[in-house]
C-alpha cells in the first residue's frame, strides 16, 4: 500500500506519542501525498495502524480541509481569496484560474492534471495575493504571473 520508506516513517510516528491515534492526522496527510487521495484501502490500512475503526478515521478525515477521499488533480491549485488577498486581487486571480483551467471550485480537469480550489487564508497575507500549488507557495500574483506559474507546472 505504502512505500517502504513511508511505512517505516509511520511505524516510527506512532511511537512519538503516548497513544497511537495521535499520529493519525499527519499519517493521513503523508498517505495522501503518496497515494493521491484517501481511498477506502488507505483508510482501512491506517485505521489498523492506529487501532481505530474505519468510522473513526473517516470522522477525522472529513474534519480537515486538506484531506480528500476522492482523487484530485496532479497539481492542486489553491487560491486564497481571504481578506488580505481579496484586497490585492485574489478574486481576480481565482477567476483567471477558472478561465485558464476551464474548471471551477473543487473541480478537476478531465486530464487529471489540475484541480482548483478557492481556499482560506494561507498565511501569506503580507505577500498577497497568494496561491499554493500542492504545497508550493506562489505569492504577489497577478493574472499574468499566475499564467507563468501554471505554465511551469504544465511543463513539468
Amino acid at each position: 500500500m505504502f512505500s517502504e520508506q513511508l511505512s517505516k516513517k509511520f511505524d516510527k510516528m506512532v511511537t512519538n506519542y503516548p497513544t497511537k491515534r495521535s499520529a493519525l492526522v499527519p499519517m493521513l496527510l503523508f498517505a495522501q501525498d503518496e497515494v493521491g487521495h484517501l481511498s477506502d484501502e488507505v483508510i482501512a490500512n491506517i485505521a489498523k495502524r492506529v487501532e481505530l475503526t474505519d468510522l473513526e478515521v473517516r470522522n477525522v478525515i472529513s474534519y480537515y480541509s486538506l484531506l480528500h477521499t476522492k482523487p484530485m488533480g496532479k497539481y492542486h491549485v489553491q487560491v486564497c481569496t481571504n481578506i488580505s488577498c481579496l484586497l490585492r486581487g485574489g478574486e481576480e486571480v481565482f477567476e483567471h484560474c477558472k478561465q485558464k483551467l476551464g474548471i471551477g471550485h473543487k473541480q478537476t480537469q478531465a486530464s487529471g492534471l489540475f484541480s482548483l480550489e478557492e481556499v482560506e487564508c494561507l498565511g501569506a497575507c503580507s505577500w498577497a495575493p497568494a496561491v499554493q500549488v500542492n504545497y508550493d507557495f506562489h505569492e504577489n500574483l497577478t493574472p499574468e504571473r499566475m499564467d507563468k506559474v501554471l505554465e511551469q507546472y504544465a511543463k513539468k
Binding site: 512519538n16 506519542y17 497513544t19 497511537k20 491515534r21 495521535s22 499520529a23 493519525l24 492526522v25 499527519p26 493521513l28 496527510l29 492506529v50 481505530l52 470522522n59 477525522v60 474534519y63 480537515y64 480541509s65 486538506l66 484531506l67 482560506e120 487564508c121
Partner: peptide, 27 residues
Amino acid sequence: AYWHTGAGAYEVGEESALMESLEGKRG
C-alpha cells in the same frame, strides 16, 4: 521534542482543539 502537522483547520488554532487534533481527533 517532536514535530506534528495539521491538515487544514483554523479551529485547531484554539488551544484545546489543538490538543484534540494532536491526539488524532477532530479539532
